[in-house]
Design a protein around this nucleic acid. Sequence first.
DNA 1: AAGTGGTCTAGACCACGTT
DNA 2: ACGTGGTCTAGACCACTTT
Lengths: 259, 259
Amino acid sequence: MSDISASATGSETKQANLAGGASFSPLYQQIKQLVLRALDMGEWKPGEVIPSEFELAARFQVSQGTVRKAVDELAAENILIRRQGKGTFVSTHLEPNVRFRFLRLAASEGRTSPTQSHVLSCQRIRANAHAAQQLDIRVGESLVYIRRVLTFDEVPTVVDDIYLPGALFKGLTSSLLEAHQGVPLYGLFETEFGVSMVRAQEQIRAVAASEEIAELLSIKKNTPLLCVDRTSYTYADRPVELRIGFYLTDKYYYRNTLI
Amino acid sequence: MSDISASATGSETKQANLAGGASFSPLYQQIKQLVLRALDMGEWKPGEVIPSEFELAARFQVSQGTVRKAVDELAAENILIRRQGKGTFVSTHLEPNVRFRFLRLAASEGRTSPTQSHVLSCQRIRANAHAAQQLDIRVGESLVYIRRVLTFDEVPTVVDDIYLPGALFKGLTSSLLEAHQGVPLYGLFETEFGVSMVRAQEQIRAVAASEEIAELLSIKKNTPLLCVDRTSYTYADRPVELRIGFYLTDKYYYRNTLI
DNA sequence: AAGTGGTCTAGACCACGTT
DNA sequence: ACGTGGTCTAGACCACTTT
């Protein structure tokens, strides 16, 4: 990124001819990466305003239009939120409107009443090979393991098994989770641990409910469930969460838009 | 859209103050709608080039930058494809790279070999209440009903039940489908019937395989399957296909990216 | 009134593909 | 050499929010 330095005047074009030689990328992509890096370093926290387009333009020595294009992409990825007249803000999982950004279950009919979350377990374990690979850590390193049940409209509907790198989530305990009842997990991760989930990849299968899961959802063994395998990433595209969810889909369904 | 008429000179701004009064929308959104309308009218067919940005700018009496923004959005929605040096093309389901744009099943391990499609049924039926509502037609109107099985790597994996408005798909018969073996259905719909699927909405559940479906997939009854309920839309956002898919997910999974 | 993002325009040059 | 999309800049005005 060291090629963002010289200033341009008049209509002199500043095409991004990198010094390194290896990879080329347009200026606005470089700006985007710089903004992402600043977000990753915690320079601006979720919910806060970032500097105006002109301030960023001055800081990075480019025109406002170039900053705009970088911010446009980050806004399209829900990482930033523009608010006309007010500024551009860092997205947060605590805002009511994007609270369930990553929960794709919708009701077959009618409303979705307030969701309830019950934590059944929160303990430290050691990473097995699969978790280590997915989370880009070493086998045997510390993990936080959380099991919880989500209840929609009084009906237990989701069992989540969540695995987090212990190094990033020091001090995450049952009592901390209990102390933040009603706060979405991803919101708590943001405020308490400075870890923002920005993107996730899911793999979905149909499975038969095990005895264990069936009991938690008050259903019969072998009831068909969605098994949703999720890996979540931060600003810097590092994987920081592994989550296996079992979704009961008789009253709710997983919705998706293909484009 | 009648407010796209007067020409602007110099730095005189042409903000989109509509005549109708009801709804306002930025110029580039109006251009986008005009392009969509042209696509819907079949002015440019899938695979063809559309006019250059400057030509479109002249046609709609706006600057090239405004056309660019409209085309940008359409390209982001995979409706148009930009090719530097060549032009902007209408997307098609026949291109190898986007052939399986709407099929989200990926292999758990390794490759996905050529998919085989076997049509089991293709007949005219009358729309029931549900289909009529979803497809925005009247109960009792003619539908084309197709049942087919998709086979991946020699393993029957998907059963699709497809419902199409008869009025749009006159002449769609088993023999026509057989005559186009190897061509994806959506590709055939484009070339033979001028119907382009541009967007789709899916609702996913886990279900137990019925006797009937189990037999088609060579599995045991009650095996858990993904049930994927899809409604597909054209350029003008009219629903033109209803599809219920049953996916066997022991070797394949449904993948999804959350942003 | 001042500051922010939102839109629109115009012109320059670059990279790619075709002729 | 030419035409296409891709990038970058600069300046104008609009709409919204806060002071």
